[in-house]
Design a protein around this nucleic acid. Structure first.
Length: 127
DNA sequence: TAGCTGACGAAAA
DNA sequence: TTTTTCGCCAGCT
């Protein structure tokens, strides 16, 4: 947790974005994931009020590389902590390398201590 | 224009 | 407890 950077960022009300679409909101939440922490597709979907649409969060990540602003998609894993999206990075190992560069241990495509590193936007960003 | 796809997750069997 | 099925819905073809 040495690399943990406290953040005082407060998320704006979702509907405040003039061009607020679902993908944009997903990117906003992903950017709020603290350094050295991870979250899940389902948690993001739940925070956005579309609990059953976790697949759409994954789809948003798939399109995130086209977004002009950087999106730390490597911090988003499935509910078991598995790096299911690694094949969508430039190289299959890039996602793991990015996580390890933040001090997150990865074994067998799975985040070590996932429960401890899990960052829940529903708790951290609740208004 | 319409059908298909998908980096998930929860419920049912 | 484990496996299978189905809903979610925006973007792509």
């Amino acid at each position: 947790m040495a690399g943990f950077v406290p953040f005082t960022f407060t998320i704006q009300p979702m509907k405040a974005h003039p061009d607020s679409d679902f993908f944009y909101m997903v990117y906003e939440v992903v950017r709020l994931v603290p350094y050295g922490r991870v979250t899940s597709y389902g948690a993001i979907a739940q925070y956005l009020g579309v609990k059953g649409s976790s697949r759409m969060v994954g789809w948003a990540m798939n399109s995130s590389h086209r977004h002009h602003s950087p999106v730390p998609a490597h911090r988003v894993v499935n509910r078991e902590g598995m790096l299911t999206g690694k094949n969508h990075f430039a190289t299959p190992t890039m996602m793991q390398e990015l996580l390890e560069s933040e001090g997150i241990q990865v074994k067998k495509d799975c985040v070590v201590n996932f429960k401890k590193l899990f960052w829940d936007p529903n708790e951290a960003l609740k208004m």
